[in-house]
């Protein structure tokens, strides 16, 4: 994919461009407020303090900020991911005991490239390689839920604290849900044909040069940012529109801090919905602007990303209903605890 850019054709040049782009990134990022103020106050000469002016200022400042963060982090993660192929992850998890395996699988879930369309081959490949069922589940829970896009958007829209809380609790859910599923010894609820599948030998992968890994970073930026920028614009535009208002309306009363059933209700609404992190975060930002408490909003987000109807349909190919029920039940409980916890603490 890197070949789409003429100047990436020579992979060895990647170094030079990256070294030139990084300082440019930094200068731009550090001067965003100045640029936004210049555009609003000097160029457009809008009236200060006006609601529309401040909403516009927020949008002009926030959009490049989130996009710049996204580009840098996806680029870096793209390079890191080139070191963690699913094959390597499988090798690492191969001879690990249950609890250590769960922790490792959840952590590897963050850095291993994962697409829900690969869930079945991955599941079969892991189980076939002798990786315990519970460890495989830890990976399958962490991989979609915790990723660089979620991280950047949470930092950009809600700050570091919320981002770290989300990642920390997401990891705990993946670790413990997988561990409990492993302890329950549910192997008999895996579809019978799974253990009979003949898995072919995978070939040894070739060593990549570092310049090729950098190329992979650019390719990741192009692919992911190209796909999600529109969600980000919408999310920030909504945030900008609501900037300064704290509307107390129906949603806020229903899913606000005061209601004990806010969290379970949010999770229930989230289960049939399906979206990736990029698609759901704008919605979450609207929910929080509308007075939904943080714990409830996080629970909703986790529920949409980690549990979904399409995923259940995919999993049904390899798992029997009791195992799917345990999976949903345990992950739901984990999200429930996280939601309640943050409504109490924050």
């Amino acid at each position: 994919m890197a070949n789409d850019f003429p100047f990436f054709k020579k992979q060895s040049n990647n170094w030079v461009y990256t070294l030139l782009l990084l300082p440019l990134w930094l200068v731009l990022y550090l001067n965003l407020q100045i640029i936004a103020d210049f555009l609003i106050d000097d160029l457009l000469q809008l009236q200060n303090g006006n609601h529309l002016t401040e909403a516009l200022r927020f949008f002009i400042f926030e959009t490049p900020k989130v996009l710049l963060l996204l580009i840098l982090i996806i680029f870096l993660v793209g390079i890191i991911r080139s070191y963690f192929t699913p094959e390597k992850t499988r090798k690492i998890l191969g001879n690990k005991s249950l609890f250590t395996g769960n922790i490792l699988a959840s952590l590897l879930g963050i850095v291993t490239p994962f697409c829900s369309c690969s869930a079945i081959p991955l599941f079969l490949g892991f189980v076939e390689a002798g990786i315990p069922l519970g460890v495989t589940f830890s990976f399958l829970i962490a991989a979609p839920m915790i990723n660089e896009v979620a991280l950047v958007l949470l930092i950009g829209l809600f700050g570091w604290k919320v981002a770290i809380i989300y990642i920390g609790t997401g990891l705990l859910i993946a670790i413990f849900a997988g561990w409990i599923l492993g302890k329950l010894k549910l192997e008999r609820y895996v579809a019978d044909w799974v253990y009979k599948v003949q898995i072919g030998q995978s070939e040894e992968e070739e060593k990549l040069k570092f310049s090729e890994r950098i190329g992979g970073g650019y390719a990741a930026v192009k692919e992911i940012v190209g796909k999600i920028w529109i969600y980000i614009l919408i999310g920030i535009a909504v945030g900008a529109g609501a900037h300064g208002y704290v509307p107390e309306d129906y949603l806020g009363t229903l899913l606000g801090r005061g209601n004990w059933y806010g969290v379970p209700l949010a999770i229930l609404i989230g289960i049939p919905m399906y979206s990736n992190a990029a698609g759901i975060i704008p919605i979450v930002s609207v929910l929080i602007e509308k007075g939904v408490s943080l714990g409830t909003a996080l629970a909703f987000m986790m529920s949409v990303i980690a549990l979904s109807l399409p995923e259940v349909i995919i999993l049904k190919k390899v798992l029997k209903w009791p195992l799917i029920a345990f999976f949903i039940g345990i992950v739901t409980s984990g999200i429930l605890v996280v939601g309640f916890l943050f409504n109490v603490i924050m």
Binding site: P113, S118, S202
Partner: peptide
């Protein structure tokens, strides 16, 4: 999926040329 797994891949989609996996994921 059973036929797909014979090629030893962990990510779909994948491309096989004359029996050899040349690309995946």
């Amino acid at each position: 999926i059973i036929d797909i797994m014979k090629y030893g891949i962990l990510q779909t989609p994948a491309l096989v040329i004359d029996g050899k996996v040349v690309l995946q994921g």
